[in-house]
Design a protein around this nucleic acid. Structure first.
Lengths: 64, 64
DNA sequence: CCTCGATGTCAAGCACACTTGACATCGAGG
DNA sequence: CCTCGATGTCAAGTGTGCTTGACATCGAGG
């Protein structure tokens, strides 16, 4: 499961801490998701898609 | 997080066990997701959306 | 009745999502 | 240089996603 969070976050000039606050998770969680350490839960995925105004399918790439 | 799995599964006349096999989880997991006991992981959510030919947003309703 | 498939549910265990707290590194600017 | 914000990462703890195995219930058909 890849994702476009790093580029989208950079476009908006948000730090990992900024984004973490916007989706109500810790900074380390954002870092881990960006780095592919693990996939977010479905609720966190929904919140991430929302702050970027994208669908989950547009934000996350399911590479089976 | 609500979902339309029960109705969609009924439309197709699939048992919980049928659906479980199609998305590679246990029957109990399908039952728990349908019953709202917990939310699926993002990979399982992707697989569920795929077997129903829907987007995750169409299949799951984020009631924050 | 009695069976049988489908569903609901519990327990125990494992893996992972997420937390707080801490520390290391790195680049930009004084 | 030195600092400082941003990022990367580790450890330890909590909660949840998912498993297997078991058992109870329920409705449809013999």
């Amino acid at each position: 499961m890849k994702n476009r969070i790093p580029e989208l976050r950079a476009e908006r000039a948000w730090t990992q801490a900024d984004l973490a606050q916007r989706v109500s998770v810790s900074r380390q969680t954002i870092n881990a998701i960006e780095k592919g350490k693990f996939d977010p839960s479905l609720p966190v995925a929904f919140r991430l898609a929302k702050v970027f105004n994208l669908t989950i399918e547009e934000l996350f790439i399911d590479d089976q």
